[in-house]
Nucleic acid binder design. Structure first.
Lengths: 195, 195
DNA sequence: AAAAACGTTAAATTATTTCTTAACAAAATT
DNA sequence: AATTTTGTTAAGAAATAATTTAACGTTTTT
């Protein structure tokens, strides 16, 4: 009989973890990470370091899927390879500090955004400059080119700002700047709709 | 002859815009927005307000695609319906201020992340509490439940912090806090690899 | 009021992505 | 050195997602 209750309790604990794993997966889905990668991350979040075989057993998926999933999560900088003494298989560990998760994930994305777009803008402005400089082109078109040039020029401050933000997030400076605190009354109320 | 140069110039301008449209689309792809929605946004960014038919003509896609694409972008709060006087067709306009784009896009996502996960945590902790409170369960399992409970509890400060960040981004406070400035020497160097 | 135009929804097709099984390459053990 | 064991790559199958055509309801114009 006690045996039976223990089985129930075990299920309850697993169930509780699954609730959170699912919401972590949905969160990552929000940012364009596939649900299965998100589920893998969530699982590793609770299980600590794991081998590919352990992941496969836990998730009931194939080993190549685990391999590619881990790789993807490594690309996002939220999973790292670890050493487990006397363990032949590779082990991997998920970033369990969500502040660092945030930092790694978004600073990377934002840096890529900045580089990507500033480069596109540079090339675009080069082309536009040719049109603007050319003598044998109608003034109407030149004005068009100038207008587009200016629109691009005006967008640069945003990218410089984002670059700063990314740096501050990467360094952790942002976490000093915006301290965390116990939730205010309003914040608590926002999450007490359906008790 | 001048006619011909003008055609070239027109192509150059379109080409320059396309470069940036593509990088905007790739950027949005980075955050999980489909490329075609990103392309649509980029197009609207340069064209100003547009009707569905104008989008269809510009992108060479079907009207329902434009309709659903616009709807998606409205969900992200980066496109709004506008009034164009004496125009029967609906018109839509893209958010052209990237600061506001950032603000609308991320504050929404982050709020959803917070609500989603705090709710999951609340439910999970309820379940775990039952296990912890129960008399007829082995102490080993109770410890497990308590450990998981604590892990969840420890993650809450992150969500409260994210909630604050989202609020500051939404209100624009963050843009005062992290001012934008001309790029520093290092920042410029980062984007002058291939001139 | 009838006809036309517009936007959305539904159904079907197409394309893309994800996942698995199978084959391979690399590493470690015996 | 030979044999396992492990991880990744390749190819095929399955599942998802995106796109289009067609149909519908609504609004606007005449």
């Amino acid at each position: 009989m006690a045996e039976f209750r223990d089985e129930d309790a075990k299920g309850s604990i697993e169930n509780a973890k699954d609730l959170v794993v699912d919401s972590l997966a949905e969160t990552m889905d929000l940012y364009g990470v596939t649900r299965s990668a998100g589920t893998l991350y969530g699982t590793m979040y609770f299980e600590g370091d794991m081998t590919l075989d352990e992941m496969r057993d836990k998730l009931g998926m194939s080993k190549p899927s685990m391999s590619t999933g881990v790789k993807k999560l490594q690309d996002f900088n939220v999973v790292k390879k670890t050493f487990r003494r006397g363990q032949r298989k590779h082990t991997y560990i998920a970033e369990r500090d969500f502040f660092r998760f945030f930092s790694n994930f978004f600073s990377d994305k934002w840096e890529r955004e900045v580089n990507l777009n500033l480069e596109a803008i540079r090339h675009a402005q080069e082309q536009l400059s040719e049109v603007i400089a050319s003598e044998s082109i109608s003034s109407h078109l030149k004005e068009d080119a100038e207008e587009v040039y200016q629109v691009l020029e005006d967008s640069k401050p945003y990218y410089y700002w984002l670059q700063r933000l990314a740096a501050m997030v990467k360094s952790g400076e942002i976490f000093e700047m915006i301290p965390f605190h116990p939730p205010t009354k309003e914040e608590k109320e926002m999450n007490e709709g359906d008790t």
